[in-house]
Design a protein around this nucleic acid. Structure first.
Lengths: 187, 187
DNA sequence: TACTACAAACCGTCCAGCCGGTATACCTCC
DNA sequence: GGAGGTATACCGGCTGGACGGTTTGTAGTA
């Protein structure tokens, strides 16, 4: 049947979301095939049909993170006029630190994936390297732009791990200031 | 016996270092009592004599991280004259990002500990909250100072996970610029 | 003798992955 | 058109191995 896949969320997607929920609620150690299957509402056999090994599930989780971030950044870029100073960098700030509610769980899931298999971080490593190269190639002040990226990472990281201590107001201040520094870096 | 503890590295210390090595070489998933014991050159029974449970080992790892960071920061502070603008903030930059070779492994170990038991992050959460409060209470530009701290965290995080892509030269540029921003924040 | 600091065998649990099934849809040759 | 074949999507019990923790033993000290 073909219709079902659009009508209902596919089982594959449900599993991925379940995995994120499990890890964001119970930490990386609770990420077992059984618990993910239970939360997703499928049997373990069903889960293993879609992801033949735990590793492949973790890989999909990491992939999902990268794709989602890219999507968020592109979306943020769309809201910025083409003539904006440091448009790409600002899009990173707004995209990564934007209000996507799923974002935190996905960050936690990424860390969990990394905890189980370090090689999964290679995808992230590559993306960071690309970003940095992009900055280096641009007319921006390298160090300033890099610091903005690092701070974005740092904040996202803290929030994924739920160890950030900022109030909403403070967070807003920080984001505003990041945008300001991003602006400066491109002049 | 008291003398031995100064003459030879205590077994307890050896275990902790072994745990860091294991996790930094094989990732969080490889951090098992057996593998740590093997690397430390003790039996599992011996390990469990010093750390009655895995949880206590992870706790010691997290504690060690906090203490070591504090030590690094204090040491860096000592190299800065008392009249330095933004001395505390600069000490954080230099202390956390300083060249301590053990530092990377300890960061990885902390993440591994967190992967196994989320509650261990409470120590870190507290330290972050303290730092941020300190900044808020000081005469510094809050957002700027916070961004410096976030960038420091971000870089340390990337390096612990080995996903940083900076060349030595670029890293130096970033640190120098961080120091400059820290200086600015205190004026 | 009592205590410290281990060693080594052992045990129970948990978990990833396997496997034999099942139901439904689609194909296809008579 | 219906019988047989095949593919998709999923179920759930099972197993073997890994891992945390216990217990028992023991060599060296005080």
């Amino acid at each position: 049947m073909v219709v079902e896949q659009t009508a209902v969320i596919s089982a594959r997607e449900r599993v991925l979301e379940a995995a994120e929920r499990v890890v964001s609620e119970g930490g990386a150690a609770r990420l077992t095939l059984d618990s993910v299957a239970a939360v997703a509402g499928v049997s373990k056999g069903g889960l293993l049909y879609h992801f033949p090994s735990k590793e492949s599930l973790l890989g999909a989780l990491a992939q999902r993170y990268v794709v989602s971030m890219k999507h968020c950044i592109d979306a943020a870029k769309g809201t910025l006029s083409a003539s904006t100073h440091g448009r790409d960098l600002k899009a990173c700030i707004l995209g990564v630190l934007g209000a996507d509610p799923r974002s935190k769980a996905m960050g936690a899931a990424l860390l969990a994936a990394a905890a189980n298999d370090l090689t999964l971080l290679e995808v992230i490593r590559q993306r960071i390297a690309d970003h940095m190269e992009e900055i280096a190639a641009s007319k921006a002040d390298f160090a300033r732009a890099a610091i903005v990226m690092l701070a974005v990472d740092g904040l996202k990281f803290r929030e994924s791990l739920r160890i950030s201590s900022f109030s909403d107001e403070q967070r807003e201040q920080v984001v505003d200031e990041l945008l300001k520094i991003a602006e400066e870096a491109y002049r």
